[in-house]
Design a protein around this nucleic acid. Sequence first.
RNA 1: GGACGGGUGGCCUAGCCUGGAUAUGGCGGCAGCCUCCUAAGCUGCAAGCCGAGGGUUCGAAUCCCUCCCCGUUCGCCA
Length: 574
Amino acid sequence: MMSLHDDFEKEVRNATETALESIGAAGAEYRIERPSAGNADLAVPCFQMSKALKKAPKDIAEELAAAIEPAGMMISAEALNGYLNFTMDPRILMRRTLDEILESGDRYGGHGSNGIRVNVEHTSTNPTGPIHVGRARNPIIGDTLARAMRLSGYDVTTEYYVNDVGKQVVILTWGVNNIPPEDVEEADREKTDHALVAFYRAANRMMESDPEVQEKIADLLRRFEAGDNGVISEVRETAQRMINGLKETLDKINVELDVYTWESKYIADGTTKNVVKQLRESKYAGREDDGACYLDLKDFGIKGKNTKFTFTRADGTTLYTTRDLAYHLDKFRRAERVIDVLGEDQKLGSQQLCSALEILGCDRKPEALFYSFVSLPEGKMSTRKGIVVYLDDLIDEAVSRAYEEIRSRRTDLSEERMTEIASTIGVGAIRYNIVRVQPEKQMVFKWEDALNFDGNSGPFLQYSHTRACSMLKKAGEFKPSTDPSKLTDEYEVALVKALSRFSSVIDEVTEYGRVHMIPAYGHEVASAFNQFYASVPVLSSDDERNERLTLVMCTRIVLHNVLTCLGMGAPEEM
RNA sequence: GGACGGGUGGCCUAGCCUGGAUAUGGCGGCAGCCUCCUAAGCUGCAAGCCGAGGGUUCGAAUCCCUCCCCGUUCGCCA
């Protein structure tokens, strides 16, 4: 189904072409744009045709405007400053937008199921410690993208790739099984991930200072690589305990992953071995004197002094990216679109992966979505050095701050209700503030920004939603009506314009992964709604009461859908 | 040194792909608005050489070139 805006653009195109013909300029090149200034709904700049037509842009615009008889959705075509400006009939805008929202409800913004399977891999942090805010962008960006794609109509699966292979988890496992609990620093909370990371830190310290420990860990790693089932299951069990802790944190910020896939699986099922075999046979493969195998990727746009991508060690064991190849081949079988949310440190690895896939004869590539790490004002975060702000601590702080806020302004709510709302607000503030900025932009973590509850913030959206809820509750029963002749205030028109843009925002998000468009859009809707609220009476109006309440109802639906996409609760009061 | 990403009022940020009309919004600052639907709100004001310099164009925050600053990366780690 064509959207309102597509239909309007089509009318503008037809009208423009007919007008060009009538002034003897058929076939002239032109562009239709959505003006940033609020002069019109669509505009055609007449500068580029000026030279060919040997006329001033201003005159062209005027001639074209005169040649157009507004009809259909178009209510006016006017010339201004060399632009041909088109305005949509607000009555049609009103009627179609509000009817569609009422009809679609919580599906508004999407297009209905499209049957396309998409796999969104996100989070996938090494199971060696709790999630810290440096990496918190990953689950939040990934989950938001997945939610937007679900709304849009995709069949989405989210997936966590658990790195249960390699030195890091082996060190952790050795520490957990060999260091007496009294020898490690006390954990700051009881969650398993916090309890276990102390052993990881201690094991790292011991390994650095004690050659004997180093040898024990090396031995464990050798047995792991050799396929010792006892060691493998020990490592897996430790990683599982860590994952359980991480899941609790993710659950608190409304992130739930559909599938946990263990890296070791691709060694056990032989698919990694197949990948190695095929890579060795390719013409790009080479072998070092000691037996390590590599691909030379200088023909694949990878520049620099070292274009070699090593895929097996001298002893024949595989490396992370080699196993990642097997993993991606598996994902390609399970989904039509494969998306990886990755830290910017994975860029080269991802590029090597894509080149190797090509060498394997695979014509598909994952869509990588990269984000920059969040740092602290004093520098980079580091789990091992303890320079770190844990996501759990950020959540606690945000929720307790939200609790203080609500207690200071409400006296009528039960303790339980306030606690519940505080959690919704605190978590919402965190998710909003993280997803708000474009992923590739580097962020410096500041408590005052992370806990912002005013202006361009999560609570601002939630507050606007509660306002709508509160009005609807006070209104009681009413007869919904989308009669556009009753909705003529400029604030009403501006609000509906904002509401009508939702699906084009979702499209942009699902097509290019630009998740930060969602909070920006939500802010725009909430802001338009608050302005409407401040200047247009609703409950006390007579003639337009049903229509205004319907507009409030539609706004509530859109805000609710936006909040759901952002993984934020939509409270009815706060 | 190479590759990739970022640089926009005091602070944070949108716009950049697809060049167009007065550069988006927020924080902070100043001045107003609750006898009326929740003031986590609304209105107004001050604040910008869009990192620097060239180029292309009728027109550049946006495209091209050079340079500067910040981040990431250049492991037989994951």
